[in-house]
Nucleic acid binder design. Structure first.
Lengths: 157, 157
DNA sequence: GTTGTTGCAAAACGTTTGCAGTAAA
DNA sequence: TTTACTGCAAACGTTTTGCAACAAC
């Protein structure tokens, strides 16, 4: 399994169990996805790699602690997890569609400068940031414009 | 009550009830605070303005929908609400201390340019953004440095 | 008087925990 | 063999919901 070595190294005194391998592997297969605990549980079940939900939660916590995963809160009531790429690539932002709940990634990170400025101005030691843009994706935006049109001309114009 | 007119105007077809006035008033008195539903419930209780918890939740939802409050997710498992100032001032960011859970505000908004750029590049209609910096506030940062020192010299040096 | 709103209690939801059995080291 | 880990079920804290009583309009 690719990435197995990384997992083993990071685990250190922790044990390398099948459950932990399965969960980590799932994130390697879904690098761009933002999976909830429930997603992980369900996806493993579908692959006949059933892992108890409590174990899923405990493992996700552990992998975050080890720096292998990143935890996000997009405001839909559940936490979502994502593979942390190399530290170079790890900075990116999210576009959260308020209509379809889709999550899109923005690759650039243009906050380094801002981060330094804020850190020195506010005497706050920054270790991470989350930047989320809320709005409407192209698809939903088009639909919404369509609907507005219809509302203004209910007879159909 | 200051701001009452604004509430009445925004409510439109909704009804202006004592409960809604009390909750909105609480946010006018706590412009810089990030109150959870439980906070609102408890604070009103202390002021002999008891409102049922379910009503607190329903009202907070409504006030967000009306654009009077903003909902935040700082990752501590509960939603927090904050008064939306005039649209000019409404953009600001948060410093979340990972140690003491303190939330500090950064007044500037330097993302307008970035927002426009992302909107056009990704064909995403941005209506809001949340920018959170995670790290350690001055107080906790000092404590942490102190602790590290002690760990390196356990005999005390 | 009509209809939206409230408060309560119950339920739902995501998440955590206690514990006995299991398996990695 | 030791000790960490797992799975289950029960508990937890936050949020939502059904419903009858109530109050704003």
């Amino acid at each position: 399994m690719p990435g197995e070595k990384e997992l083993k190294e990071k685990l250190k005194e922790h044990r390398l169990t099948p459950q932990r391998r399965h969960i980590f592997a799932l994130f390697l297969e879904n690098k761009e996805k933002h999976l909830s605990a429930e997603d992980v549980y369900r996806l493993l079940q579908e692959k006949d790699r059933q892992v108890g939900l409590a174990t899923v939660y405990r493992t996700l916590d552990l992998l975050v602690e080890l720096g292998l995963l990143q935890k996000h809160h997009f405001g839909d009531g559940r936490s979502r997890y994502e593979r942390v790429q190399s530290s170079m690539e790890h900075r990116h932002h999210h576009l959260v569609c308020l209509k379809c709940q889709g999550i899109y990634e923005v690759k650039e990170d243009l906050l380094c400068h801002l981060e330094r400025q804020i850190a020195s101005e506010h005497k706050f030691e920054i270790v991470d940031h989350h930047l989320q843009f809320f709005g409407y994706c192209a698809k939903c935006s088009a639909k919404s414009r369509q609907k507005k049109k219809e509302d203004n001309n209910p007879q159909g114009g």
